[in-house]
Design a protein around this nucleic acid. Structure first.
Length: 122
DNA sequence: GCTGTGACTCCTT
DNA sequence: AAAGGAGCCACAG
């Protein structure tokens, strides 16, 4: 194998780490771009999360569980992407108030979950 | 290599 | 509530 690098992604690769975090968001839960970045060990790199979601073609990736800050859907209201995202979220029981998700109810990780990780080491 | 863009977020007016 | 600006930086042209 010399030419045509398949470029196997390393765990240190920011893209791979972001995708891993997104895959871990449980059904019925949501997580903001900035939080996904932090959980991936990439603080202040929320934009990269958007770039990764936009460019990846991975099947079954729950991209729709990733939201803007404060539970806002990041797409323009009424756009195809917006409607798709809302539909997927509703299908798994996520509550919305207008163009916002009820973060109190659906935010991930939950406080106690984060605390457990700190106390027990994840 | 440089520039403009953007599925972002935070802080200050 | 809303708007401007800074920080961030991969990508496309």
């Amino acid at each position: 194998m010399r030419s045509a690098k398949p470029a196997p992604v390393k765990l240190s690769d920011p893209h791979a780490r972001i995708l891993e975090v997104v895959r871990r968001i449980p059904r019925g839960c949501v997580c903001p771009y900035g939080e996904v970045a932090r959980l991936a060990g990439l603080p202040r790199r929320a934009r990269l999360v958007g770039t990764v979601l936009k460019t990846t073609a991975e099947k079954n990736l729950p991209w729709y569980r990733v939201l803007g800050a404060n539970g806002r859907i990041a797409f323009p209201v009424g756009s195809d992407a917006y409607l798709r995202q809302v539909a997927r979220l509703k299908k798994e029981g996520v509550r919305l108030k207008g163009q916002r998700v009820d973060m109190q109810r659906h935010a991930w990780p939950r406080e106690e979950e984060s605390l457990d990780k700190l106390l027990w080491g994840g």
